[in-house]
Simulated assay, not measured.
Amino acid sequence: MQVSVFSIRLDAAFLEYDQQQLNAFLNSVTFKKSSTQFVEGEEAHWSVIVHYESEEQQKPERLERKSYEDLNSKDKQVYGYLNQWRNEKSEALKLKKYMICHNSELIDLAMYKPSNLDELQQIKGFGKQKADRFGEDILAILNAV
């Protein structure tokens, strides 16, 4: 966990800017907790301490590979939908099923359920090219279930 300190000045000339800076920072990290203290004096302000985790700390470079037995009943249902999509996609593109996705990749998708293309690329076997080619379809399936 990391810490950053912000000053929110009360002077109308600075207040909105300081708030925007804090909000922009909060949108770029995973917020954990904060504490505030009012500082009196010539330039009274709020001192805000933010405890957070950066995106790099949160997620490993690649997710751990799982097996079908690791899936719960809901994940197995998602696996079934992904498998059906892969079968239809392989017929439409006239490709072998494994050229679309390996079974192990479908298992990982069903278990980890990435919610965007960056998370999808953390699944072993999904680089930028594969995520760009099939990512929207996969994410649509995962968001629908």
Results as ranks from 00 to 15, higher is better:
V78A: 14
V50Y: 09
K96Y: 13
Q122K: 15
Q57W: 02
N103I: 14
L63D: 01
E119D: 09
Q58L: 15
Y79P: 11
I100G: 03
L71D: 06
A44T: 06
K66L: 01
E42C: 00
E88M: 06
E69M: 01
W85C: 10
E88G: 03
E40A: 14
P60N: 10
R65N: 02
A110V: 09
Q37S: 13
G125I: 06
Q58N: 13
A44K: 13
E64S: 11
W46M: 15
L109R: 04
I123K: 12
G80I: 01
K76Q: 13
F126I: 00
L117H: 10
E119S: 08
S104D: 10
E61C: 01
E53I: 09
D70Q: 10
S47C: 08
W46N: 12
L109Q: 03
Y98H: 06
R65H: 02
N83R: 15
M111E: 04
V48C: 02
L120E: 13
I100T: 01
E88W: 00
L93D: 12
F126K: 03
Y81N: 11
K89G: 10
N72F: 11
D70V: 05
G80Q: 07
K94F: 06
L106H: 02
L71C: 08
Q122P: 00
L109M: 03
S54R: 04
V78S: 07
H45C: 07
I123G: 01
P60Q: 08
Y68F: 15
D108G: 06
Q37D: 03
G41H: 10
M99G: 01
I49D: 09
N116R: 00
K66P: 00
P60G: 10
E88K: 02
L93C: 01
Y68H: 12
L71A: 08
K128R: 12
E69Y: 06
E43I: 05
K124H: 14
R86T: 08
L93R: 11
E55P: 11
E43R: 09
E53N: 13
Q122C: 07
N83S: 15
V39E: 05
S67Q: 07
W46L: 15
A110Q: 07
K59P: 08
V39Q: 11
G41C: 09
H45K: 12
Q121G: 02
R86M: 04
D75N: 11
P114H: 09
Q37T: 12
K59A: 15
N72R: 09
K113G: 04
D118T: 05
S115P: 04
E56M: 06
E88A: 09
S104Q: 07
R86W: 06
L63E: 05
Y98D: 00
E40L: 10
K74G: 01
Q37A: 15
E56R: 12
E42A: 06
V39G: 00
K76S: 10
M99N: 05
R86D: 03
P114C: 11
H102C: 00
E56Q: 14
L71N: 13
D118L: 04
L95G: 03
S54Y: 03
K96R: 14
Y68M: 14
P114I: 05
Q129F: 04
L106M: 07
A110G: 10
P114G: 08
N72V: 08
L117P: 06
N83H: 14
K124A: 06
S104C: 00
G80R: 01
N72P: 12
E64Q: 06
A110P: 12
E40V: 02
V50P: 03
Y52C: 10
H102N: 01
W85E: 05
D108N: 14
R62G: 10
S67E: 04
